Simulated scan of single mutants.
Amino acid sequence: MARFTAPDGLNLHYIDSLDAPGAHDGPAILCLAGLTRNSEDFRFVLPFLPEYRVIRMDYRGRGQSDWAHDITTYSVAQEAEDAIALMDHLGLERATILGTSRGGLIAMLLAATHPQRLNGAILNDIGPEIAPGGLERIFEYVGQRPTFANYDAAADALVALMAPRFAGVTRDRWRIHAELIWNQASDGLDLRYDPRLRDALLGQAGAGPAPDLWALWDALAQLPVTVLQGANSDLLNAEILARMQARAPDMRAVTVPDRGHVPFLDERAALEGILSHLKDFA
């Protein structure tokens, strides 16, 4: 199990495709997952990237990484510095960021603070502004243990719950998804992250108005950037995407049909956007 030491001494987990037998040492892609997700967030896109060196990181408190002693370090700023520490650990001068949700916010901050380390970024259903309904939904589930007894029960529930935003997704896919985001415990499914992440978010929300992220977007817009949007997303709506395009005329925008927040990344439209970006800019 590959691990590295963060600046504050925490041990964090990552997966480097170069460690696999017969791996191809191509251009580096640093995959940064969603808020409560982990390195398995990119399981479905990985088979389509054999020509690239794909590095997947578990943020502090998520997946197989250590939980933080100080929950205030569950922040975009700290996670951005952790990403740079991982690149330093691997001897990577530059990488393309593939950032899902929270990972896209980290990419924006890195573009402002460490632009020389980025070749560009692909954002999966995230922008510098979050639609209010999406933010409310996030606070409904963060830190809350699922109520499902097992993965089969979770799959059945996800089919019913997600169908309006994820048309055509099979029960088998939802079961795999459940396995990637939750652990099976003796008394039911459990979180694969530190539940105190909720306390950290609430503390940050109570500290004052949210920072204006549009300046960070302007920094990222100086680099090659592609934005994937789920057509049914409640976080990145068409209005926000249009404002992003207006401030970044060279941005490539891809809408993924029949997907909410977030696309799995192996959809036809998502793959076309990802592979086109990597071919031109990685």
Rank of each mutant, 00 (worst) to 15 (best):
D212Y: 11
I181W: 11
L228H: 09
G260W: 02
D156I: 07
D234C: 01
Y193V: 07
T255D: 01
A185D: 14
E140K: 11
T147E: 14
Y141V: 11
V227Y: 00
I181D: 12
L191P: 12
Y141I: 10
A153K: 14
L180G: 08
A149W: 09
F139G: 08
L191Q: 10
W217N: 00
Q204C: 05
G188I: 04
A163Y: 00
T255G: 01
R171I: 04
A205E: 15
Y193F: 15
A253M: 08
N232K: 09
V142I: 10
R173E: 09
V159N: 04
L161A: 12
V227K: 04
Q144P: 00
G188H: 08
L236S: 08
L228E: 10
Y151D: 09
L161M: 08
D234Q: 01
D172Y: 00
R173K: 08
W182Q: 12
A246E: 15
L191E: 07
Y151P: 07
L191W: 08
A153Y: 09
A157G: 03
L241G: 06
M251S: 02
G230D: 07
N150S: 14
Q184M: 13
S186G: 08
L228T: 13
P209I: 08
R192Q: 14
P195G: 11
A205K: 15
R173Y: 13
T170V: 00
V227D: 02
P249W: 07
W182S: 14
A205H: 15
F148P: 04
R171C: 03
A246M: 12
L202V: 08
L241D: 03
A155R: 01
F139Y: 10
A155Q: 02
D212S: 13
W174M: 04
D199Y: 06
R175I: 00
I138V: 11
L213R: 14
R145A: 12
A248M: 05
L223A: 07
G168E: 02
R252C: 04
V225I: 12
R175V: 00
G206T: 11
V142F: 00
M162I: 07
G206Y: 12
W182N: 14
D152S: 12
L158W: 14
M244Q: 10
S233Y: 05
I181C: 13
F139L: 14
L213D: 09
D194P: 07
R171S: 06
R252H: 05
A246I: 06
A157C: 02
N150C: 13
W174I: 05
Q222W: 00
R171E: 10
A242C: 05
V256F: 04
V254L: 01
R247I: 07
W182H: 15
W182C: 13
A149Y: 07
V142S: 04
V142N: 01
W182I: 00
A185R: 13
A157T: 01
Q204T: 10
P209E: 15
R196E: 09
D152Y: 04
R173F: 11
N232F: 03
D156Q: 12
R198N: 13
R165Q: 13
W217K: 00
F148E: 13
A242P: 06
G143C: 06
F139C: 01
R173S: 05
L180Q: 14
A163K: 06
I138F: 01
L197N: 08
